[in-house]
Design a protein around this nucleic acid. Structure first.
Length: 430
DNA sequence: TCTGGGGTCCTAGGACCC
DNA sequence: TCTGGGGTCCTAGGACCC
């Protein structure tokens, strides 16, 4: 980051916007997108927000709105969202002096020039994304990331601004009244718990936090919140977003559509999830040195709970799907209590590196263990195929996908994969 | 009946060493 | 047996984010 301006660009109600970009029947009516398994609401259109539907609301509680308020419902379609995100990010990369992708629908972009020029560039970004991709974005501009987030928040809540807010161009009185009114929990990095603790100290609004003593904040909380105070005062201290390839772990965890109770079903889960996680590692060209398996009963159920979790240190960095699958199955078998209703489970790979561990070779350069050598060969073939044709194309043992397991994900309201699947391309009739 | 998934960062505390 | 401090490394857990 240089001595220019920081902007935050994000898509309004991203998942809903993606669905709407391809389906005109979803415009001007309440729309929600559901989590995996169609469990609860993860994204809402403005109309759905106006109906009072909160994020995280279980689907069954709002199903009645489908009839009474013409509510449209979609299962989440991550192929579509990932593809739309890539298009937005590619376009954003053409504007600005630097570009950091922060999440699936948010980027920080460095903008140069005087404030009027910056406002004009922000408006161009907005128009370009709307025209070529068909999703609405808001742009907030200020001197630090935390303030740019805040400016974006202001742009979103004040339609009169036309989706762009350059904080330095705001009327100081208007800005001041916002800072004195907006609760501190709306600041990036201040959540519910910290908000409650701050409130107990009399720090309730953004202006209160801005005026707080950074040293006192550091002592009572952490350097994280201290940095937030600095950033609110225009001092940049939040560094660049790390590149994805450097990140620390790969997870594959899911809720099941029906509970898993037996060793056999759990083995199937662990086997498939370990292979999915391994295939993700392969696509990123990385290897793991630590395997974690988890499972859990419902947090909402009465009666005895069970949250088995174990870590397995791998003998050497690997992404071998057979090895990971076997180890995950074995670790979970020792821990789970058959008969309990497990509603979720997962596999986490961490301790990631770019190079595999050394194989143990004998004096003649042969692998010490012929069985291990053979497994090595099979695994690399499996990895090769799943890299070329996708993880669904091949599976080992339990993961042979001749049938979908009973517990696998429910997606009853899925939209078409307009952009990523040849069989579901949008047909335009002229 | 039905309640998401995938991450990051920081801190405290224990084990171990000199 | 008791006395002491400083340092590193690792892990678990908390808090937050989208």
């Amino acid at each position: 980051m240089s001595a220019d301006h920081v902007s935050l660009v994000d898509v309004n109600n991203f998942y809903v916007a993606c669905e709407r970009a391809f389906d005109y029947s979803l415009r001007n009516r309440p729309v929600v997108v559901l989590s995996n398994n169609d469990g609860c609401v993860v994204a809402r259109s403005q109309e759905a927000k106006d109906l009072g539907i909160p994020t995280g609301e279980p689907f069954f509680k709002i199903q009645r709105y489908m009839d009474s308020h013409n509510l449209a419902v979609r299962s989440s379609n991550y192929e579509l969202y990932g593809d739309m995100s890539a298009r937005v990010m590619e376009l954003l990369g053409r504007f600005g002096t630097w570009h950091e992708v922060y999440s699936i629908d948010e980027s920080f972009v460095g903008l140069e020039g005087n404030l009027e020029q910056v406002r004009s560039t922000a408006a161009q970004i907005r128009a370009a994304i709307d025209k070529t991709i068909g999703v609405p974005v808001c742009v907030g501009v200020s001197s630090t990331k935390t303030l740019a987030k805040l400016a974006n928040h202001i742009a979103k809540h004040n339609p009169g601004l036309g989706g762009v807010c350059v904080q330095q161009l705001m009327d100081p009185e208007v800005l001041g009244s916002i800072m004195n009114r907006v609760p501190v929990t709306d600041v990036w990095g201040v959540g519910r718990k910290t908000g409650a603790k701050l409130a107990a100290m009399g720090i309730e609004t953004i202006a209160d936090l801005q005026a707080a003593d950074p040293l006192a904040i550091r002592k009572k909380f952490s350097v994280v919140l201290q940095r937030t105070v600095f950033e609110l005062n225009g001092q940049r201290c939040i560094g660049p977003v790390e590149e994805r390839a450097d990140r620390g772990q790969v997870m594959f965890t899911r809720s099941f559509s029906t509970p898993v109770r037996t060793y056999e079903a759990m083995e199937e889960v662990m086997s498939i999830y370990a292979q999915k996680a391994a295939s993700r590692l392969a696509s990123e060209g990385r290897y793991a040195s630590l395997l974690t398996v988890t499972a859990g009963t419902s947090r909402f159920a009465r009666g005895e709970a069970s949250f088995p979790s174990a870590q397995v240190r791998l003998p050497r960095p690997t992404r071998d799907p057979i090895l990971l699958s076997k180890l995950a199955i074995a670790a979970m078998r020792d821990l789970m209590q058959p008969g309990m209703d497990y509603v979720r489970g997962g596999v986490i790979l961490s301790g990631l590196s770019d190079t595999p561990g050394e194989q143990q070779l004998d004096l003649f350069g042969q692998n010490v263990d012929p069985a291990a050598q053979e497994q090595e060969n099979v695994s690399s073939v499996v990895q090769d195929i799943s890299l070329r044709f996708g993880a669904k194309s091949i599976g080992l043992g339990h993961a042979g996908l001749a049938r979908s397991p009973e517990w696998s994900m429910k997606r009853e309201h899925i939209s078409q994969r307009y952009t990523t699947d040849w069989d579901e391309l949008l047909v335009v009739r002229a």
